[in-house]
Amino acid sequence: MKQFLVRLTARSGREAGGAVEFRGSGVSFARAVEKKLLRAQVTSVEQLLALNERELRSLPDIGPVTVSSVIATLAEAGLSLAADPYEAYECARHSDVARDAELRSYFLCNSCRDAYAQLAFGARSPEWVSSERVEGYCGHCNELRVVRLSQWFLCGTCDRVVRSLGRGLASAKFVESVWADTFRGTSELSLRETDPVELRPRGRRSDVDRVSTADFVADDASGKAVLGIELKSGRSALAGDGIGNTMPQFQLDTTDCDDITAAAITLNVPVFLVHAQVIGRAHAPTERYEGVGLWFARPWDMLQHLEAVRRRPRETRDAAYFKTAMFRPFAEFPAYMKDQFWADFESMRRDGFPLLYQR
């Protein structure tokens, strides 16, 4: 492309309405933008088009407003800045560029891979799928199947969320299994999952249309709800059961506490906090999730075990920090149901659901 020199004086015949054109280019910049480009030694359209947005931003006296003006003006003329070979990738889950987005790898069976693409990643196919098929555990459904390594560009936050889904599904199945074993032949309570783990794009559910509900509801023989369960899972154990070191504190987002309260009010039954310890066991090159411990906390015990409410490190959310002594092994739940639950139930009907935390 030939050089298109800037004419800054009215004698050039190119100045009109406070704007200056690059001769012959059809591109017209406002005087202030033109001066900034000149001071940055950008004197031609050819030179400007050789720059990418990052390089343009790095020039002296060129800020975001100037860059936006340049991009808009070039677009009107059907032109654009050069592509940046080091630009940030776009996260497949929230469909926006993110500096920490990178290729994230997951061993998935065919059905879960399709579900990821359609339900969580905006119908995007993986960036790469291995041609090698191996027998192993799917990172989502946690079933022993033929799996392949699949990759998408995801930011760190979305990667953590996606990886937590398989653990969440495994913990829900673990709770159902423990419940069945614990209450076999001793109770008519049946457990049903009411808020299952779902694949969805980031931000799909807003705070406005969000409905607080327990993860599980236990019904009596007539089908009437008796209690709810809010399930949290992690790698760490609590005292009296589980595997490995016990966690020193139990952290729960204040929004989760509020959801428990809202669910209890909606259902008009007590909602209990349950923690499942779910660990990974290697089945090279994959990993299997296995539940190894389960505990419950009465909502009436939470406030007295509250230690602090503070902002989570490196996050914008507040969390309530509880002493782990508020939890009991789930093996004690049948005895609690027999000896204490109905008194607690009546106290809730009389006094309302207990306060879980206070700032």
Rank of each mutant, 00 (worst) to 15 (best):
R31C: 03
K36S: 05
V65Q: 11
P64L: 09
E53S: 10
A32E: 12
L79P: 04
A77C: 11
E87S: 15
A77Y: 10
L59R: 06
I71A: 09
A77I: 12
L49V: 06
F29Q: 02
H94N: 13
D61V: 06
K36F: 01
A77W: 11
V70F: 04
A72C: 08
V33H: 01
S68V: 07
L59D: 03
L49D: 02
L38W: 05
S68T: 14
V65T: 14
V67E: 07
V67L: 12
L51F: 08
A72W: 05
A40D: 03
T66L: 05
A92D: 13
L79K: 11
V65R: 14
V33C: 07
Y86R: 14
V27E: 03
R31I: 09
V45I: 14
L49S: 02
G26H: 13
G78V: 13
R54G: 02
E90Y: 05
S68Y: 07
P64E: 14
R57G: 12
L59Q: 03
V65H: 10
L59A: 05
S58G: 11
V27N: 01
A72L: 12
R31P: 00
D61W: 05
R39S: 05
S80C: 13
T43E: 02
L38H: 05
P64M: 06
V33W: 00
A82R: 10
A83S: 14
V70R: 01
R31D: 09
L74G: 06
L81Y: 07
E55C: 04
D96F: 05
A50V: 03
S28L: 10
D84L: 14
V27M: 04
L48V: 04
E34F: 03
A32M: 04
E46R: 05
S95P: 00
L37N: 00
A77N: 13
S95L: 15
G26K: 09
V45E: 00
A77M: 14
V67T: 11
E87V: 14
G63Y: 08
L37I: 02
Y89N: 12
C91S: 11
Y86I: 07
S58D: 15
E46W: 02
